[in-house]
Every structure is written in structure tokens, then in C-alpha cells.
Design a protein around this nucleic acid. Structure first.
Length: 487
DNA sequence: ATGTGC
């Protein structure tokens, strides 16, 4: 048997790109890493594998905890981690969802081609930077009232539709149709609501961005045609989350769960994995609050998209409808959701599927896939770095049996933000991108550009190649940046 | 990720 020895953890090769950490000690199940050997070399450099092992200690974890090819260490649980945990006798863990609840990405199409924007990149990036709020702190597209925040938390993109920030087709092209009906705004603290009130429609900082891109490659003609994608087409990618509101929800419930379920915590190998037992009051409360934060993030991305449509209409002196600026799809990267899956003994169970830095990747036929894509599989959007472009995939046939219907979410960091700032200088990164790749970057902070330099990320091509080879997410098209705004 | 911290 082929094995891979990382520091303190031995993995057994199951087949190409599938590695297993066998069950031992307090593990309730084995763990699996889906990666090439090159990616595994990177994954094994930080605490990812230990965190993945730790996750299998959570009560009710089913089949195996999984690390995606873009995995790296996170708070308690890997970013790029997936755990399907029994919703009846298991638990729910905020650390396995992440601080930025429903951090995610949407792609909007246009009928413009690269030739239409060439020579106008500067004008476009300036107009977008001016119109779309970004950076740390407050200021959003819409200054919300207390009532707005409650309505957003309760109804998600249905609120945006009522307020004229969306058209019905936007909701039809969003995961969960842009609303989690399990949301309970009363379970979100006033502090979280106050933080969110003036951040409705704002990018934030860190790896969040808005990017105008051109489609460079199409790999599956039939699926690309169904998605409305073709070479040289201009598209817009929006990557952001639930800002301070989601962060506060995570903080609030981590503290409460640590205190109320100290007994369970004592049996876990890492305090950061704090979990509420299924059926407990805090499990219900956290789920309701998390779903509300999910709704907030969808509205956030919707309002940024709405503003982007206005900018394009202005710059190109027409209407967004004439530019056919339609939403391809919006996918969540940091969520937990009740879903029914076949587990290890062939039984169908309701699970809290935790996807932290992982994308739902449902294939054709699955009822949660919206009618527009039910017969081809859902679109999956995987952003790469500023220098590497991004991918559109579609849900693969193997995802339901291998990954609870999930795949990767991005390139994955190679180094810390602190290290990145020592290696790169923002202005140089911007100059290099413009001169070598014709990519126009505008940011609130040079430090953010350094932290997000292309060199701090893993090879997104390799991540997507593994997803495609495993059949969990099939490569459809590749894009490359034209201009990018960020915090 | 984040009014970047208990």
C-alpha cells in the first residue's frame, strides 16, 4: 500500500487523488484528503491534517471528514473542510462553518466582449471603485434601518426583490433561491445587527473583491452553452460575505456553546471545535442565527451586483438589461445546511453538512438544483488569485457519493498575511499585474494587495484539475481578470 | 474573515 507520511500523520492512498487517515483513538470515523501529491505537500505544511483528524472526533460525524484539494488550516477546522454530521444524534459546530458566514461568490454575465472593454479598463475600474463600498468598517450601498436588517435576516433576497434591488431571475439563479427559510432574526444579537446595519452592500477587506473578467477557455461546450458562457465574453465576479454581522454571530455562539456544552468540549481535542449537540437549544438557536447571516450575505452580494449593473450602464451608455447582465449563479462557501445524504451503511440520513471553504457541487437531478440547471448540474464558481483567473465548473456525478455533494472553493493560501507583507509590496504587485498581464487593480490599502498577491496562493489550475479528475466538479470554463477592486 | 485585541 502506498502511504504518505506527514509530520505525525500517515495517510493511506485509496486511489488517485484520494488519501485516507484511518480511524484510531478518539476518531469516530476516518478522514480523507482529496489531493494530488503536490497539493498534499502543501496541505501537510500547516495544521490542516491534525485539524481534519480532530474534526472526526465530533459526535455523529458520518462516513469521513473530508479535506478538499485547496485545504489549509483555519479556526479549529480546515478551510476546505467538509463534514456531514448527523442532525439527529450529532452536533453543529460554528468553527466548522467559519467566521465569515456565507462568504461566497457570484458570477454575473454580460454580452460584452473583451474588445469592448480594452482601452477602457482604467475608466471602468475607477467607476467601480467609486461606486462599490470596500474596506474595513462601515458604509454600504444601502443605509439600513433596524427594520431593514430584520427583514433582510428573515427574507434574504426576497427583501432585495421587494425593495427594487433585484429581479425575480436573480433569485432563480442563486443557491437556495437567495433565502434560507430556517432563519430566525430573533436569535441574532443586537450587537451583530448594529454591525450589519451600515454594511449592507459592501465588499469588506482581505480576499474579498469585485473583478471584471474575460472568458479565456471553454472545456465543455454543451454545458458552457447552457450556462450562457463563451470565449472572450466579459463577466463579473463578486466575492464577499456577511461582514461584521456574520462575524459577530460566530463570536456570540462560540462563546455561548463553549460555556453551555463544556462537557462535550472536554471530550474534543481542540477547544476551537466547540459544538452544540443536535436537538439542544443552542444548536437550534445557532442554526437560526447562521441562516439569518446567510440571508444577509446574499443581500450583500445582490446590492453590490445591482450597483455594478448601474456602473456598467453608465460607462457603456445603455441599460443593464441591454447588456444582458444576468446572474449565472451565486454559491455559498461557508455554511452548514440540513441535507439528506446516503451515509456509510447505505442509509439516508438528515445531516448538518458543514462546508467551510467548500462549495456545494450537486449534479443533475438533485432537487435543490434550480430548474434552470436541474438537467445539467449546478454551476460552481471557484475564484483564483488576481494573476491566475477563476473557474466555472458544474456539479459532478461523483460528488454525492464522495463529498456529500461538495468540491473546492478557491486556490487556498500558501502563506500567512504577515509573511505575504514581508515578501511583497502592494504597489509593485499592481505594477507587475498591469505591465505583464494587463490586469488593473485598485484597492483601499496597499497592504491588502500585498496580502493577496498571486504568489501567496496555491495553483488554482491544479485544484480544479483534481476536482475534475475525481468527478466531483467538472471543469466548464476558465476566466482571467481584466480589472479588480478590493478593500 | 473581522470596528484585526480577553
Amino acid at each position: 500500500m502506498t502511504t504518505y507520511d506527514a509530520d505525525g500523520v500517515t495517510l493511506e492512498k485509496v486511489r488517485d487523488y484520494v488519501w485516507e487517515i484511518p480511524q484510531e483513538g478518539g476518531m469516530n470515523r476516518p478522514a480523507r484528503v482529496l489531493a494530488s501529491e503536490d497539493l498534499l505537500d502543501e496541505i501537510s505544511e500547516d495544521k490542516t491534517l491534525q485539524q481534519l483528524k480532530n474534526a472526526t472526533h465530533l459526535p455523529g460525524v458520518r462516513k469521513y471528514a473530508i479535506c478538499m484539494p485547496d485545504g489549509h488550516q483555519g479556526y479549529g477546522f480546515p478551510v476546505g473542510g467538509v463534514a456531514g454530521i448527523d442532525a439527529e444524534d450529532g452536533c453543529i459546530s460554528p468553527g466548522a462553518v467559519g467566521y465569515d458566514i456565507n462568504c461566497g461568490v457570484r458570477m454575473m454575465k454580460t454580452n460584452l466582449t473583451y474588445a469592448d472593454v480594452q482601452g477602457r479598463e482604467e475608466e471602468l475600474v475607477d467607476a467601480l471603485f467609486e461606486a462599490v463600498p470596500s474596506g474595513l468598517g462601515g458604509g454600504g450601498v444601502h443605509q439600513g434601518t433596524k427594520g431593514d436588517v430584520d427583514a433582510i435576516l428573515e427574507r434574504g433576497m426576497e427583501w432585495a426583490l421587494e425593495e427594487g434591488f433585484a429581479v425575480p431571475e436573480d433569485l432563480e439563479h442563486c443557491e437556495d433561491e437567495g433565502v434560507r427559510h430556517d432563519a430566525d432574526p430573533d436569535r441574532v444579537s443586537q450587537k451583530a445587527k448594529d454591525r450589519g446595519k451600515n454594511q449592507i452592500g459592501s465588499l469588506g477587506s482581505g480576499n474579498h473583491f469585485l473583478e471584471v473578467q474575460r472568458v479565456t477557455d471553454v472545456y465543455r461546450d454543451d454545458v458552457a452553452e447552457r450556462f450562457g458562457l463563451s470565449e472572450d465574453q466579459i463577466v463579473v465576479l463578486i466575492h464577499c460575505g456577511s461582514r461584521g454581522l456574520g462575524h459577530q454571530v460566530c463570536t456570540d455562539y462560540l462563546r455561548d456553546i463553549e460555556q453551555a456544552h463544556a462537557g462535550l468540549l472536554d471530550r474534543l481535542p481542540d477547544k476551537e471545535l466547540a459544538a452544540a449537540p443536535a436537538g439542544s437549544q443552542l444548536a437550534e438557536d445557532y442554526y437560526g442565527a447562521m441562516c439569518a447571516a446567510i440571508n444577509f450575505a446574499w443581500v450583500n452580494r445582490q446590492l453590490i451586483m445591482h450597483r455594478t449593473r448601474e456602473v456598467f450602464a453608465d460607462v457603456f451608455d445603455t441599460t443593464w438589461e441591454d447588456l444582458e447582465m444576468d446572474l449565472l449563479y451565486d454559491v455559498a462557501h461557508n455554511i452548514a445546511k440540513k441535507e439528506t445524504h446516503e451515509v456509510e451503511d447505505g442509509e439516508e440520513r438528515e445531516l448538518f453538512v458543514h462546508r467551510k471553504g467548500a462549495t456545494r457541487a450537486f449534479p443533475a437531478g438533485r432537487e435543490e438544483v434550480p430548474p434552470a440547471y436541474r438537467d445539467v448540474g449546478q454551476p460552481i464558481i471557484i475564484p483564483g488569485s488576481m494573476g491566475a483567473g477563476s473557474y466555472v465548473l458544474r456539479g459532478g456525478e461523483e460528488s454525492l457519493s464522495e463529498t456529500f455533494g461538495s468540491t473546492a472553493h478557491g486556490a487556498g493560501r500558501l502563506m500567512s498575511r504577515t509573511q505575504a507583507k514581508q515578501e511583497f509590496w502592494g504597489g509593485d504587485v499592481q505594477d507587475d499585474l498591469r505591465e505583464q498581464s494587463h490586469v488593473y487593480v485598485k484597492a483601499q490599502s496597499g497592504a491588502t494587495v500585498a496580502e493577496e498577491a498571486p504568489g501567496v496562493y496555491k495553483d488554482v489550475d491544479e485544484v480544479v484539475r483534481v476536482s475534475d479528475a475525481l468527478g466531483i466538479g467538472d471543469r466548464v470554463a476558465r476566466t482571467f481578470p481584466v480589472c479588480n477592486i478590493k478593500g
